[in-house]
Structures are given as C-alpha cells and as structure tokens.
Deep mutational scan, measured.
Amino acid sequence: DDVELRDGDWRVELKDADEEILRAVEEAIKNGASEQELRELAERLIR
C-alpha cells in the first residue's frame, strides 16, 4: 500500500509521488476531504 494515512494526522505520505499528485492531495486535504475520499483520490492518481 503506497498511501499511508494516520488516524487524526492528515499528513499523507505518497512514495514516489510526483508534484501533481502531491498538489492534488494537499488541495483535497485543504478542502476537508474525508480519509475515505483521500484514499480514493490517491488510488486514482497512483494508477
């Protein structure tokens, strides 16, 4: 699993992620995405 989400800690570690993925995830976090939404976003972007 390349995506690590810690309970109560919104730092997201994406291994080997490019800047576009990181920006998309950071934007989702700023917009108040839930953990499930972040997982789905990350899975779509990593593929």
Rank of each mutant, 00 (worst) to 15 (best):
V3S: 12
V3Y: 14
G8K: 15
N31I: 04
W10Y: 04
K15T: 07
S34T: 08
I29D: 04
A33V: 09
A28R: 01
W10A: 02
E19S: 06
A17Y: 13
E26A: 10
K30I: 07
E35S: 07
V12R: 08
A17E: 04
D1Y: 13
R6S: 14
L5H: 14
V25T: 01
D7C: 01
E20P: 05
L45W: 03
D16N: 11
K15I: 11
N31T: 07
D16T: 06
V3G: 15
R39V: 05
R47K: 15
K15S: 07
V3Q: 11
A28Q: 02
L5M: 13
W10D: 02
A28P: 00
K30W: 05
D9N: 12
D7L: 13
L5P: 05
V25Q: 00
N31P: 00
S34Q: 03
L22S: 03
E26H: 04
I29G: 08
R23W: 10
S34L: 03
E35F: 03
L14Q: 01
E35I: 06
D7F: 09
R23L: 11
V3I: 13
D16Q: 07
I46N: 03
I21M: 06
L22G: 02
R6E: 11
L14Y: 07
S34F: 01
L45V: 03
V12D: 12
A42Q: 05
W10M: 03
G8F: 15
L14E: 01
E20V: 08
K30G: 04
L38N: 00
A17G: 04
I46E: 03
I46L: 13
D2K: 10
D7E: 06
E43I: 09
D18S: 00
R6Y: 14
K30L: 10
L38V: 13
D2H: 13
D18E: 07
R11H: 02
K30S: 09
L41G: 00
L41Q: 00
W10N: 02
E40V: 05
D2E: 08
A33C: 03
A33M: 12
I46R: 04
E35T: 06
D16S: 07
A42E: 03
A33Q: 03
A24W: 09
E26Q: 02
I21V: 10
E27R: 09
R6V: 10
E13F: 15
E19V: 14
G8R: 14
E27H: 07
A28T: 00
D2Q: 12
L5W: 14
E20N: 11
E35V: 09
V25L: 13
L41F: 04
E26R: 12
D7K: 05
R47V: 13
L41M: 05
L14V: 03
E40I: 08
E43F: 09
K15Y: 08
V12F: 05
I46H: 04
R11N: 05
N31W: 01
R6K: 10
L38P: 00
L41P: 00
I29H: 11
S34G: 05
E4I: 12
V12E: 15
G8I: 15
R23K: 15
K30C: 12
W10P: 02
E19Q: 10
K15N: 07
G32R: 01
R11A: 07
D16M: 09
L22K: 11
K30H: 06
G32S: 02
D16V: 07
W10V: 04
A28V: 01
N31S: 12
G8Q: 08
D1G: 11
I21S: 03
S34V: 01
E4F: 05
D9P: 06
E4Q: 11
G8Y: 14
E35K: 07
E43M: 11
A42C: 15
E19A: 07
V12N: 05
E37C: 10
E40H: 04
R39G: 02
E26Y: 13
R6N: 14
A33Y: 14
I29C: 14
E20W: 14
E19H: 10
L41Y: 02
E43Y: 08
L5D: 08
L41S: 00
Q36R: 10
A28W: 04
D9H: 09
R39Y: 07
L5I: 15
E37V: 04
K30M: 13
R47F: 15
V25F: 15
E26V: 10
D7T: 07
R6P: 06
A42P: 00
Q36A: 13
W10G: 03
R11Q: 06
E43A: 10
E20Y: 14
R6G: 14
E27D: 08
R47W: 14
G32A: 01
L14T: 02
L22N: 06
E13G: 12
R47G: 15
D1H: 13
R44I: 06
R6F: 14
Q36I: 12
K15E: 12
D18F: 08
R11F: 13
D2Y: 10
L5V: 11
V12H: 11
A28K: 01
V3W: 14
A24T: 08
A33D: 01
A28M: 06
R47D: 14
E37Q: 07
E40F: 03
N31K: 10
D7I: 08
E40M: 02
A33P: 00
E20F: 13
V25H: 01
G8P: 13
S34E: 02
A33R: 04
A24F: 09
E20Q: 10
D1T: 07
L22W: 14
E4A: 13
E37A: 02
A42H: 08
L22M: 12
W10C: 12
R23I: 05
R39F: 06
A24Q: 15
D16W: 11
V12T: 12
L22R: 10
A17V: 15
V3M: 12
E20K: 10
R11S: 08
V12Q: 06
R23Y: 06
D16F: 11
E37P: 00
E20C: 15
A33N: 02
R6L: 13
R6T: 13
D2N: 15
E19C: 14
R44F: 13
A24G: 01
W10H: 02
R23C: 12
S34H: 02
L5E: 13
Q36G: 05
L14D: 02
R47N: 15
R47S: 15
E37N: 03
E27W: 10
A42D: 00
E26P: 00
W10R: 02
A24R: 05
R47Q: 15
N31A: 06
R44Y: 10
R39L: 08
K15Q: 05
W10L: 04
G32H: 02
L22P: 00
L45T: 01
L5Q: 06
I29A: 13
E37F: 05
E40K: 04
L22D: 00
L41C: 08
G8E: 13
D18I: 06
I29L: 12
G8C: 03
L45K: 00
I29F: 12
L14G: 02
